[in-house]
């Protein structure tokens, strides 16, 4: 079970955390909602839960709860630019199909 984060994404996370002034790291997760079953959660993390798995890479802590990890195993978190828009991208090998916009997905 593993989650990876690219250097570009890590740089941005560090930057955002520094700007925010506090925070342990970031939390990745999935929720059942959205038009295609599952939706990603991407939040600042202020504290870790007992069951959390913590992955640290490029100086950034990524917290994932065990249930979400099932759906996220092998995911790489990247930061990219598409046209004027920029943001985080989940490269998740578990996804079978996603809704048109890709905000929610099925495994």
């Amino acid at each position: 079970m593993t989650i990876t984060i690219t250097e570009a994404a890590a740089n941005h996370v560090r930057n955002f955390l520094q700007n925010r002034g506090s925070g342990l790291g970031i939390r990745l997760g999935v929720r059942t909602s959205g038009c295609s079953g599952m939706a990603y959660v991407l939040e600042f993390a202020d504290e870790s839960e007992e069951d959390d798995q913590i992955f640290e890479q490029h100086g950034v802590k990524v917290l994932v709860d065990p249930k979400s990890l099932l759906y996220l195993d092998g995911t790489e978190l990247d930061y990219t630019r598409e046209g004027l828009n920029e943001g985080f991208k989940f490269n998740n090998p578990n996804v079978k199909d996603a809704c048109g916009c890709g905000e929610s997905f099925n495994v």
Partner: peptide, 17 residues
């Protein structure tokens, strides 16, 4: 896929919202 932004803890929005 859509690009995501970091939210405050507990403030993640549902897709398309």
């Amino acid at each position: 896929m859509a690009l995501l932004q970091l939210s405050e803890p507990g403030q993640s929005t549902a897709p398309h919202q």
